[in-house]
C-alpha cells in the first residue's frame, strides 16, 4: 500500500514535469495552429543551455533559469521570425498550413544533428549538483527532491503563463489572435509579431522544463525524442491549447507510468497506456479541457 502511495506521489511529481515539457507545445499550438515537431529539440537545446550554465559556473541548477529563460525566448522568437514566418506568409490563405509542420520537422533534424556535431553523442550529467539523488523521507516513503522542485516549478510556470494570457494586454492580443487572427488584425494586432512572441514563450517554457530535468537526467543530442511523443500525447489528452490540461495530462501519464509497473511488466504499461489513450480519444476527441467547437 505504502509503495503505491509512494509511486503515486513520485508519479505526480514526474508527471507535472512532463506537463511542463508539454506546456510550450500546447501554447504554440493554441495560437499558431500547428503541431511543432521540433518541440523535443527545443527541450534538448534548453537542457544543454541549462547544463552548460551550471557546469561552467558551478551555481545551483535552478539559478540557470536566469540565463535559460531569456536565451530560449530569443531563440524561439527568432526561429519563428526567420525560419517559420516566411512559410506562413507564403501560405497566407491556408488555415492550418501543413508546410509549417514539415518545416518544424526539418528544424528538429537540424537541431538534433547540429547538437550531435557540436556536443558529440556523449551523455552528460551534473553529478555534483546539490539536488542530485536527494530524497525526503516521509515515514517509509522516499520522495525525490529534484522532482519535487520540478513539479513546483511546473505549476508556477503554468500559472504564470495563464496569468499572462488572461490579464495582460499582450496576453489578450495573443488569445484574440488564437481565436480569430483576421478579426485580431482588424483591431491592429500584428499577427506575425504575436506568432514570434508566442513561439518565444513556448520555447522559454521548454527551457524551464530543461532546467528542471538536468539535475537528475542525462543530456544528449537526441534526448528530445524520449520526451516529444509523450508531450504530444499529453497535449492531446489535456486538450490542445489548454494550459491546465497540459499539466493535468502530464500528471495522469506520470501516475500511470509510475504506478503501472507495480501491477504488470513495464512493457505492458506502455501498450495499455496508449491503448487507453486511443479509447479515450474515441469518447472525447477534444481532450479533457479542449474546446469542441472551432470557429
Amino acid at each position: 500500500m505504502i509503495t503505491i502511495l509512494e509511486d503515486t506521489i513520485n508519479g505526480i511529481l514526474m508527471g507535472s514535469i512532463y506537463g511542463l515539457m508539454a506546456l510550450g507545445l500546447t501554447v504554440i499550438f493554441g495560437v499558431l495552429k500547428v503541431i511543432n515537431f521540433a518541440h523535443g529539440s527545443l527541450l534538448m537545446v534548453g537542457m544543454y543551455v541549462a547544463y552548460w550554465a551550471v557546469q561552467l559556473t558551478g551555481l545551483h541548477p535552478y539559478l540557470a533559469l536566469i540565463l535559460v529563460v531569456p536565451v530560449m525566448y530569443l531563440f524561439g522568437y527568432y526561429l519563428q521570425d526567420i525560419v517559420i514566418k516566411p512559410i506562413y506568409k507564403a501560405e497566407k490563405q491556408v488555415r492550418e498550413p501543413i508546410t509549417v509542420i514539415i518545416v518544424t520537422t526539418g528544424v528538429w533534424y537540424i537541431l538534433d544533428n547540429l547538437s550531435l556535431l557540436v556536443f558529440t553523442p556523449q551523455y552528460r550529467s551534473l553529478p555534483d549538483n546539490p539536488l542530485r539523488g536527494k530524497m525526503i523521507e516521509i515515514g517509509s516513503m522516499l520522495i525525490s527532491v529534484p522532482k519535487l522542485w520540478g513539479a513546483v516549478t511546473a505549476v508556477l510556470t503554468a500559472a504564470a503563463i495563464y496569468w499572462f494570457l488572461q490579464k495582460t494586454r499582450m496576453g489578450r492580443a495573443i488569445r484574440a489572435t488564437s481565436l480569430d487572427r483576421e478579426a485580431a488584425s482588424l483591431m491592429g494586432i500584428r499577427q506575425y509579431s504575436i506568432y514570434n512572441i508566442t513561439f518565444g514563450i513556448g520555447t522559454a517554457a521548454a527551457g524551464v522544463a530543461g532546467v528542471t530535468i538536468v539535475p537528475f537526467f542525462n543530456v544528449f543530442p537526441t534526448v528530445g525524442v524520449l520526451f516529444d511523443i509523450k508531450c504530444f500525447i499529453i497535449v492531446v489528452l489535456g486538450g490542445l491549447g489548454s494550459i491546465g490540461g497540459a499539466i493535468l495530462g502530464g500528471i495522469i501519464i506520470g501516475i500511470i507510468e509510475s504506478v503501472g509497473p507495480q501491477f504488470m511488466a513495464a512493457t505492458w504499461t506502455e501498450a495499455i497506456v496508449y491503448g487507453l489513450f486511443l479509447i479515450f480519444l474515441f469518447v472525447r476527441p477534444s481532450g479533457l479541457f479542449g474546446v469542441k467547437y472551432d470557429w
Binding site: R169, R172, R175, A176, L179, D180, A183, M187, I189
Partner: peptide, 27 residues
C-alpha cells in the same frame, strides 16, 4: 480606419470586457 467585420467575428471564448479591451489594442 476601423472595420466591424461581417458576421461579428467576436473572440468567442473571451468575455465581453476582454473583447472590448482588445478593441483598444492599437497605440
Amino acid at each position: 480606419i476601423i472595420q466591424v467585420p461581417e458576421g461579428r467575428r467576436l473572440f468567442t471564448l473571451m468575455s465581453i470586457k476582454d473583447n472590448l479591451a482588445v478593441g483598444a489594442y492599437s497605440r
